[in-house]
């Protein structure tokens, strides 16, 4: 009996060991119940948030969010680097490598864009307008189905 319990515990710990922390590297990451965009979003994770990620399967990671919700996030929304959100809280000065950390809001950022806007060098009116053109995934699914295109998007 003890042996069975030990084996079960080892199996659980081996499973847990495959979960690694990853950071959301897009403004708003969406967690889906299956590895597909054609489903109801079950959680939204913000830029820089950490999730626990399992083994990559065809471009999707099984993830668990900080508040315990489980689902799938596409690999392009995640980074193995820890994303450090604020100046002054970074480990960069202590010699961590670029493989481990990325700085959020540093460098070419909103502050630089604001300066260009302020100086009147670039007009962002149409950039903002096109960025507001949003397409719901339901509409994409309908577009694909009606056009006899691929049935299940990823």
């Amino acid at each position: 009996m003890k042996t069975k319990v030990l084996i079960a515990l080892l199996a659980v710990s081996a499973g847990a060991a495959t979960m690694v922390p990853m950071s959301v590297q897009v403004r708003s990451g969406k967690v889906y119940p299956k590895p597909s965009y054609l489903g109801t979003v079950i959680a939204t994770v913000e830029y820089g948030a950490q999730v626990q990620a399992g083994t990559l399967e065809k471009g999707w990671y099984p993830v668990t969010t900080a508040d315990g919700k489980s689902g799938w996030l596409h690999e392009s929304a995640l980074s193995k680097k820890r994303i450090v959100m604020r100046a002054g809280t970074t480990d960069v000065g202590t010699g961590v490598s670029s493989d481990e950390v990325a700085l959020a809001g540093k460098g070419f950022n909103a502050q630089v864009e604001a300066k260009l806007r302020q100086e009147g060098k670039l007009d962002y009116t149409w950039v903002d307008r096109m960025s507001e053109m949003k397409v719901e995934m339901d509409a994409v699914a309908q577009f694909l189905t009606q056009g006899h295109l691929a049935g299940g998007a990823q």
């Binding site: 897009v26 403004r27 471009g59 392009s76 096109m130 960025s131 995934m137 998007a153």
Partner: peptide, 23 residues
Amino acid sequence: NLLGQALAVFSARPETFGGYHFL
């Protein structure tokens, strides 16, 4: 935008920081 998004979800990089937008 519908056409573009329908393609983007099949790309190797369907998600970018601010998403795909077309004009």
